[in-house]
């Protein structure tokens, strides 16, 4: 069983394509799955994941841990994650810089964390709790955001760098999220790329956004429902020029197209990696 994510372009595997992948064993360097999609005690999902795990390196990407929760992490969520990690031994485990729970009520989304000293402490405590519990390092993903808090004390990259430094976690850098947030909050995406901790980046995400018109203004929504936009490809090129090749993932979560479309998107990423680093790909 392969157990290392290559520095190539993998694909986020969703239920719509389980059967296709099982039947065709497509030429894909690695897959990433949402951890919570396999929280079942048994049944078909575990069978599928085992088959995929036998044939490909895999990464677990959680969406429900709520690392920004004030009162620590859910023991049940931690336990289920640990059981899956122990059973399937993914090459990478990642989660989000976000929160979704307060006083036992969940808003099942990736809600924004204020970039304050208090929030770094909360994040670091929770990341450490998760890393200790599952017994390995995790990567955390930079969020896409639709607002900026008034009490923000530092730019996002500084917040993330601090969290990484204090917790020892790695970074899953989502280039689409940087682009979306930079548009919505009016910051400089290239400056962000230059200042983020390069050595901590263990994986890159690419996805498509959608545009919502509000009056004469536009806000970008991180829908994962489209091809990667050319502005995001441009930013991706700059990113790998800055810090080198990294395992890169194509994510698509709404209006999911035929598997071949995802392969074409992954191929574009591979071409950029090859163009920038011809000898090593």
């Amino acid at each position: 069983m392969k157990n290392k994510i290559p520095q190539k372009a993998g694909i986020g595997l969703r239920a719509q394509h389980y059967q296709y992948v099982m039947n065709n064993s497509p030429d894909v360097p690695w897959f990433e799955v949402h951890t919570e999609n396999f929280f079942a005690q048994g049944g078909i999902t575990h069978h599928i994941l085992q088959k995929v795990r036998n044939d490909y390196p895999i990464s677990f990407h959680g969406v429900g841990m709520s690392l920004g929760s004030l009162e620590g992490l859910s023991k049940t969520h931690l336990q289920k994650t640990k059981e899956l990690v122990d059973k399937f031994q993914p090459a990478l485990v990642s989660e989000h810089i976000s929160w979704s729970e307060i006083d036992g009520v969940y808003m099942n989304d990736l809600l924004p964390v204020p970039y304050t000293k208090e929030a770094t402490d909360v994040l670091v405590r929770n990341i450490n709790q998760m890393q200790d519990f599952i017994g390995r390092q995790i990567l955390v993903e930079n969020p896409s955001s639709y607002l900026e808090f008034l009490n923000q004390e530092m730019p996002e990259y500084e917040f993330i760098n601090t969290v990484i430094e204090k917790s020892g976690c790695g970074l899953l850098l989502d280039i689409n999220n940087i682009y979306v947030s930079s548009h919505n909050q009016n910051f400089d995406a290239e400056q962000y790329l230059k200042n983020i901790n390069h050595s901590a980046i263990g994986e890159i995400h690419l996805a498509g956004y959608s545009v919502r018109n509000i009056g004469d203004q536009q806000i970008l929504i991180d829908t994962h429902g489209d091809k990667v936009h050319h502005q995001v490809w441009d930013l991706y090129k700059k990113a790998i020029e800055l810090f080198g090749k990294r395992p890169t993932l194509i994510e698509w979560d709404t209006d999911i197209p035929e598997f071949e479309i995802l392969q074409e998107e992954a191929k574009k990423a591979e071409e950029i990696l090859h163009e920038k680093y011809p000898s090593s790909v």
Partner: peptide
């Protein structure tokens, strides 16, 4: 009250999260 004012109202920005959930 805790969102930085901009050309897009805070209410519209919050609505995106609400709609998503």
């Amino acid at each position: 009250n805790n969102i930085k004012p901009s050309l897009i109202s805070s209410e519209e920005r919050i609505r995106i999260y609400k709609d998503n959930v």
